[in-house]
Amino acid sequence: MLWQQLINGLALGSTYALIALGYTMVYGIIQLINFAHGEIFMAGAFFAFLMVMVLKVNIFIALILAMAFCMLLGIFIEFVAYRRLRNSSRLSALISAIGVSIFLSTLALLVFGADAKGFPDGIFPNGQLQLGSVSISFLQILIFVVSGFLMLTLQFIVHRTKIGKAMRATSQDYNTAALMGVNVNMVISFTFALGSMLAAAGGVLVGVYFNAVSFNMGLLVGLKAFAAAVLGGIGSIPGAMLGGILLGVTEVFTVTVGFSSYRDAIAFAVLVLVLLFRPSGLLGQKIQKKV
């Protein structure tokens, strides 16, 4: 049973990691807690759901379409709601993000209703891997692999490509980067596009995995993913993965030992404890105080 629970924890953790990756990347570049990230995740899930139910497309094609849709959505949101606020206080941007989040979730509620929607049975090959008493579904493996793959890809983009260099420059010093010829608007749009694509991928996979897509899924899962990103050290891409997995495994083992009612409390307690001993998260960079 312990091994099975470990698998459960890893699978749950991967879903957190999938969303935390997007959170952390946007934060890493423009230091904005993008509260609307969870809603983009929800929008991706609903878009794929519509594709599958109405146009009857294959789930993998729906996934790609949802990523494209959310990419545009992300760029649009950044352009409308955040761009003007880049030089204002960070709180203003945070409130604007909350406004976007309220808008999107209410829109989803109006369009799709309050009840959760499920993808049809058998949309995804429902096989299982049996290792002794432990069973792992293909979907669990896929989520794990996809989040690992995305983490590596992101790491590669940010650290090994030209646009990545521009992203890091923008994150270090916005004005200097602009002076040095970096097209910061383009870089930030790109960051949002990438982050939103990740959110969409996460939304579709999580929607299929938990078999429920609902207007409020963004807030509930988004909050945990945000916690995971901070736990790993917000801004750090491997940190988001680590934080997500750690949070997932902690939650599952809290349930295993019989404290299911304290599940969320323990998860956040771990977060707060880690922060006390490592104030910038597990893999986060030390905050440099400029004098």
Partner: peptide, 16 residues
Amino acid sequence: LSGDYLAIATLGFAEI
């Protein structure tokens, strides 16, 4: 804790 880390710590405390 500073800035956003404090924010998440207070959020965590509230959830707990």
